[in-house]
Computed example of a mutant assay.
Amino acid sequence: MPYEWTAPVEAPGAPQAELHLWPYRSLPRRGMVTFIGVTAGLLALPMIAVLGSPVLWGLLPFLAAAIAGLWWGIERSYRDGSILEELRLWPDRMSLTRHNPRGPRQDWDANPYWVELRLHAKGGPVEDYLTLRGNGREVELGAFLSPEERKALYDDLDRALRTLRADPA
């Protein structure tokens, strides 16, 4: 799952629970290097037929541009996928911080007793849209997760909120 609950820290003022969410990364960095290498090799294979002729020099810039474009596209995907959402729960407060890859950080705070957790089966921008409503605002949570992951997160977060509301100490 591309989210995890971290163990609570025993310190004054520390949150009782903390949740970190991030987009799923199907291609790790090592896999990206392997993919680029294999792609370059496969693109270079037909070039053996024109080795030693002037045609090679005409095709070589296109080969290099294709590999550079592939590298740039995957790197851009990594930068865009560097979103991190942090949800912290205290007995009297909860906060959500979203660290965007290109843009300002977004913050939301509310009293957990009054927060409404909702899973919209239909009508949201994504399937099984997960939102938190409180303090006069409704914010989305984990829009980058799959529908199954949002359902599991809904159950986990609902359980955490019920526990927090039942034990205010």
Rank of each mutant, 00 (worst) to 15 (best):
residue 10 E to V: 10
residue 10 E to R: 12
residue 12 P to C: 11
residue 13 G to K: 11
residue 14 A to M: 11
residue 15 P to R: 01
residue 16 Q to P: 04
residue 19 L to G: 06
residue 20 H to C: 04
residue 20 H to M: 14
residue 20 H to F: 15
residue 20 H to S: 11
residue 21 L to Y: 02
residue 21 L to F: 05
residue 21 L to R: 05
residue 22 W to P: 02
residue 22 W to G: 05
residue 23 P to L: 01
residue 25 R to P: 06
residue 25 R to Q: 15
residue 28 P to H: 05
residue 29 R to S: 08
residue 30 R to Y: 06
residue 30 R to K: 04
residue 30 R to H: 06
residue 31 G to M: 05
residue 32 M to G: 01
residue 32 M to D: 01
residue 32 M to Q: 03
residue 33 V to R: 12
residue 35 F to R: 11
residue 40 A to L: 03
residue 41 G to A: 09
residue 41 G to Y: 14
residue 44 A to W: 15
residue 44 A to G: 07
residue 44 A to E: 02
residue 45 L to M: 11
residue 46 P to Y: 09
residue 47 M to T: 04
residue 50 V to K: 09
residue 51 L to K: 06
residue 52 G to F: 15
residue 53 S to N: 09
residue 54 P to L: 15
residue 55 V to A: 08
residue 56 L to T: 14
residue 57 W to S: 11
residue 58 G to T: 13
residue 60 L to N: 03
residue 61 P to T: 03
residue 65 A to Y: 15
residue 68 A to D: 01
residue 69 G to P: 00
residue 70 L to H: 01
residue 71 W to K: 07
residue 72 W to K: 03
residue 72 W to V: 15
residue 73 G to E: 00
residue 74 I to L: 13
residue 74 I to C: 12
residue 75 E to V: 04
residue 80 D to N: 11
residue 80 D to K: 08
residue 81 G to K: 04
residue 82 S to P: 02
residue 83 I to V: 12
residue 83 I to Q: 07
residue 83 I to L: 13
residue 84 L to E: 13
residue 86 E to K: 10
residue 86 E to D: 03
residue 86 E to P: 00
residue 86 E to H: 10
residue 88 R to G: 10
residue 88 R to I: 10
residue 89 L to W: 09
residue 90 W to F: 13
residue 90 W to T: 07
residue 92 D to N: 06
residue 94 M to W: 04
residue 94 M to Q: 05
residue 95 S to T: 15
residue 96 L to I: 01
residue 97 T to H: 11
residue 98 R to M: 07
residue 99 H to Y: 10
residue 100 N to V: 14
residue 103 G to H: 08
residue 103 G to W: 09
residue 103 G to D: 02
residue 105 R to H: 04
residue 107 D to I: 08
residue 109 D to Y: 13
residue 110 A to V: 01
residue 111 N to D: 14
residue 112 P to F: 12
residue 115 V to M: 04
residue 115 V to I: 00
residue 115 V to A: 05
residue 116 E to I: 14
residue 117 L to Q: 14
residue 118 R to Q: 05
residue 119 L to V: 02
residue 120 H to N: 03
residue 121 A to C: 04
residue 124 G to N: 10
residue 128 D to G: 05
residue 128 D to Q: 12
residue 130 L to V: 10
residue 130 L to E: 04
residue 130 L to D: 04
residue 130 L to R: 00
residue 130 L to K: 00
residue 131 T to E: 13
residue 131 T to H: 09
residue 131 T to K: 08
residue 133 R to Y: 01
residue 133 R to P: 03
residue 134 G to T: 02
residue 134 G to W: 02
residue 137 R to S: 14
residue 137 R to W: 12
residue 138 E to Q: 10
residue 142 G to Y: 04
